[in-house]
Design a protein around this nucleic acid. Structure first.
Lengths: 352, 352
DNA sequence: ATGAAAGCGCTAACAC
DNA sequence: GTGTTAGCGCTTTCAT
């Protein structure tokens, strides 16, 4: 094989190669590729053929270097504060959470039409957070969708400070200039309360999420407010940690303290599922003895028996909208900070 | 603000800036950053200070352009052939599958020490597959970890053909030169068979995975072989699709055809869970009337009552090893093609 | 041990 | 409408 030919085979084609084959200049080829008008139609065709003939694919590094666009965005899972668990277990739990899968699906769906893909980053330690910030500052991604499980997570503000386009899934604890999507959590809790009240429950309790999480607070507040309107001024609540096990523990305590309980509202489906297991163990029939309502409408809701009545959170749509918010910010970093609040709905199944 | 200062503030520092501040040349700074020896210790220190002072972060596009390394790898979920479902639903199902979360966790864990992050790509349509191939050829990633749900998926061979470093989760249907990790599925099935036989089950059946999937075939073969050794030459099997719903459907049929059934082995936990629901509905006690064994040891196994006895697949470790296999190939594309087979173990809980 | 200089492949002024 | 040219920020010979 001649040296010339060998080179032609092994080295990926460049714009220069295409230009030579088409008999035009680099710029013209570049224009055709980037869909810029002002190019003669015949020449366009010639160029296209040359591209096909050479098997040319634009080099993204070269393009990024000059456009200053990475052409990818980061999906950051942050604040996985592991106190008891080790790092691997914590990461595992978050990535296995059905909520995460749905969010991911929404992000991927919104990115697809633009030909983009998310860079997945897990920032569960201080070191990992630094790495994430570094990676983004390097231009590793054009922006970040942040899903933070820890309300005290410092990452959102840090990223905003360095001028990165960032958006947040859920309202930040402290007000910072950042776009976000969230659910009308109080409305969701009200839906649950109304349903329980309408069923005739007279002694209801709640299994709440971690006290520091705004969404958990809102759900508790909303639930208590609505129950108060129904004539039940006091609703006991035990704090859970959004895991099934947490739901089990909370339910045990709730049952011990309120044996006459006939309704439970859990801050998410996983905890509701745990609660149902415990109720079952204690011989309570669901929904006849105790009605149970969850939150999220995750896969866990359908994968439990009886099927879980739950407050649906349109996670996929929320994540998709959030991604579009980010993309808008990447296009125009000086644009307005927006937030979009979604409305929950009650999905009535068998548990209440 | 003066023009000069404004520039200094807004524009990220470059190697040149650092060099000027440190009073050395670009090359020297580059050497320090890349940890190349042959640099005077004092100068190294000066350079480090200059880096800190300027807040310099290397530009990854520029680096990639010259090194021809993207510094990221792709995690491709492929072959999500949706015939009944629409695209969104299919993507959702895969991303929400507990198996996926565990695999992702393993990949992330293996990448972290190298400071790398996975680019997540879902290739569920022919168009999406082209996009993935294009992205990789562009240099969007240095290699790909492929998790393929469809045995007929053309992506593995395509990627291998274009010379991309690729590795596969699970043995390819047709032999192609590709590194992979897999589980000793037949051994796993044998574990289940032995346990069921030891319990005294006399009429067992299986809910298999899709017939075209090698792992599903191996589990069926292994189960039948082992049961035959225990004196049960024929084991009925209904094919499921690895979803809970599929498990329910299969169990209904199995029960209709074999009312005297006292043991069921399901190809994965999700189907086992569905089977348990159906058995429960039909008044069968688990494990007293019918013993049930799943496969995977996914989160579903713990999230069911009774807790599922299952064949554990060390997905996280497998994914981590797979990632290391890929990294090795990226380092040395001419290196050997390797496959690593992991051993399953039986996790005995309550269902059998 | 350090510096000078040549690109990597592309886009975007700018000129024609 | 098309070509010429000047970089983008970095690594890497090659001199020194």
């Amino acid at each position: 094989m001649s040296d010339a030919l060998r080179t032609a085979v092994s080295r990926p084609a460049t714009l220069e190669d295409v230009a030579r084959v088409a008999g035009v200049s680099r710029s013209t080829v570049s224009r055709v590729i980037n869909g810029i008008r002002n190019v003669d139609l015949e020449i366009q065709e010639t160029v296209r053929q040359a591209i096909a003939a050479t098997g040319y694919v634009p080099n993204s590094a070269a393009r990024s270097l000059v456009t200053r666009r990475a052409g990818s965005i980061a999906l950051v899972l942050s604040g996985v504060a592991g106190e008891v668990e080790d790092e691997d277990t914590a990461r595992n739990r978050v990535l296995t959470d059905p909520f995460f899968g749905r969010a991911l699906s929404g992000v991927v769906g919104a990115l697809r039409p633009r030909g983009l893909h998310p860079l997945l980053m897990v920032a569960d330690t201080a070191e990992a957070r630094d790495q994430v910030v570094g990676h983004l500052k390097q231009g590793g991604a054009d922006g970040a969708v942040l899903v933070s499980t820890d309300p005290e997570d410092p990452l959102p503000s840090r990223l905003v400070e360095v001028g990165m386009p960032v958006v947040l899934f859920a309202r930040p604890v402290r007000p910072i200039p950042i776009s976000y999507v969230d659910l009308a959590n109080r409305d969701g809790a009200r839906l649950a309360a109304d349903h329980l009240a309408a069923r005739g429950c007279r002694q209801v309790a709640m299994i709440g999420g971690p006290a520091g999480v705004p969404a958990a607070q809102d759900r508790l507040t909303g639930f208590r407010e609505a129950m108060a309107r129904h004539g039940f001024p006091y609703v006991p609540c035990i704090e859970g940690d959004f895991t099934q096990r947490g739901g089990e523990l909370a339910m045990e305590r709730l049952l011990a303290e309120n044996p006459g309980l006939d309704g439970v509202f859990a801050g998410n489906d996983l905890m509701a599922q745990g609660a149902m297991f415990v109720l079952h163990e204690h011989g309570r029939r669901i929904p006849d003895d105790v009605a149970v309502i969850g939150f999220d409408d995750s896969s866990a809701a359908l994968a439990s028996r009886p099927r879980l009545t739950t407050v649906r959170q349109p996670v996929e749509e929320m994540a998709a909208e959030l991604t579009r918010l980010l993309l808008a910010r990447v296009e125009n970093p000086a644009g307005p900070v927006t937030s979009v609040i979604f409305e929950p709905s009650l999905v009535v199944r068998q548990s209440a």
